[in-house]
Amino acid sequence: MEDEITHKELAAAEKALAEGRYDAAQRLLNKAAESGATPRHIQDLHRRIRTERVRHEFAVQNSVFGGFGIAFVGYLLLCIRQPLGWGIPLWLALAVGVVPCAAGGYVGRRHAGEREPGASFRDGAKSVAGAMVCYSGFSTLILVSRLQKGALQLGEEAFAALLTTALLTIVAAGMAGVASVAASRIGVKRTDASA
């Protein structure tokens, strides 16, 4: 028969599981097993911990896609106008502030509970930088092609323009990536704190 301590340990494990602290939940479950929890309870909880852990890992692994999606949609909306159309201050705020923060924050939240150091930053930077590469590359290539008779052409000038485009893309991606890193950290912290 399960005594009161065992019940408490099982309840604590359940709570830890609900909060996404899988290691703690497993530890408490082990304790409950030692305290004499029934095999049915142990098996059931163990299976749920494992399933939830897998689900979480999956979510973490795919957070980079989610972050990319958010940033991509954000930049897609920015695409509607060129930076001058938005006004440079507003555009800067949106392109290297709001959009990276939204995507980075999302990645950070999905990483909550993740204990691998730097994973959330890496994923946040990857997703936002990827979207920024698409956005800046797309926008500048359009401009380059419009500068050059409406179609990309081979030639020294076109090569220089493409080189400039590549440089712009890298720099813009770097800036957006850095912005997203900070946001992802905030996301992780807030989620941990709320937990």
């Binding site: 060129q82 930076p83 001058l84 159309g85 440079i88 800046s136 926008s139 500048t140 401009l143 380059v144 419009r146 500068l147 000038e157 220089a160 323009a161 400039t164 440089l167 712009l168």
Partner: peptide
């Protein structure tokens, strides 16, 4: 207008990229 848009992106590179300076 197209050039202005282009320079909004690339203007900061004019100091070290001659083509952007020409733009």
């Amino acid at each position: 207008s197209v050039r202005r848009d282009w320079l909004a992106w690339s203007g900061w590179t004019a100091s070290f990229l001659p083509t952007v300076r020409s733009d």
